[in-house]
Amino acid sequence: MTEAAAWSGLAIETRGLTKRFGRQAAVKDVDLEVPRGAVFGFLGPNGSGKTTTIRMLLGLAAPTSGEARVLGHEMPREGGRVLPRVGALVEGPGFYPYLSGTGNLHRLDSADRYAIGRTRGARVEHALDRVGLGSAATKKVKAYSLGMKQRLGIANALLTPRELLVLDEPTNGLDPQGTREVRSLIRSLAAEGTTVFVSSHLLAEIEQICTHAAIMSAGSLVAQGTLDELREVGRPRVRLLTPDVALAAPVLRTFGMAVESHDSAPEASADGREIIAILGDDSIEPDAVVAALVAAKVRVRGFAVERTSLEDRFVALTGEGFNVDQ
């Protein structure tokens, strides 16, 4: 038990979690810390190792090295004790097409030895109602749309009260209305005290509901913390639009600002180029900077101070574009 005592009371904790397929590492040395009660956004582009990490957390795949603890228990060894308290949606819904929505949930609930059979029918009905599938409950799943299957997958995660919900891309295939519904469902579950671990490659979808987030890139965890912590990592920046780039850069440097990207600034327009500089510390007055620029005969056509959004941070950490990592 001394070893267990060394682990804190986190809902999910991994240490050095690594998974290799052949020579390629799908997940490298990931140290996740998901506090209880958090709505934890697990972000990363496609192919960054999110789903592989989730498979290891749920005991579907064994780590090559490192450890994973879920609700204080070691996975995959103690999965039989932990998993009844965990509801999950992994890599899209999977159902028997020839059974109805109700039939599918009965089937999966009967696999849980802790679930009480006597109340199964009522619990299935509640779960279906909760995701708005009450009216399609008796339809065969092969007649379901992708969004309906996704909802059924979420209903499956809600069959018994759970301490932890792991939702892998829960809004995949949902229309905007469905996306909103899933968000409000996650909010209400979190309000009941459930820890929610939700992965997504669309930052905007979960930025509004998360208390914490982690960002994966090419198999590694590149950042994690509360949403505010993640935002603060990016310091305020100055965005200056001017045709006199060569004149402006030295002026900005006298304020201790690090000038970025003035050579590679892509959007050279009639108004000049855009210079981005990191505003070194908050004590610098933007007004003073503009005054100094004008005094140095820099034609200022645009000037803005901005804080990085999580999106900028996400893009900065994971890279831009549609290329799947590796």
């Binding site: 009844p84 679930a115 069959l159 009260p161």
Partner: peptide, 26 residues
């Protein structure tokens, strides 16, 4: 959002009554 919260609380109370989970595995 509003109705969902209301719904959630009813589901919560009824699942408690329904005794969905047993202490020892079957």
């Amino acid at each position: 959002s509003d109705t969902e919260t209301a719904h959630a609380s009813t589901v919560d109370s009824s699942t408690t009554v329904l005794a969905s989970v047993r202490a020892r595995p079957a």
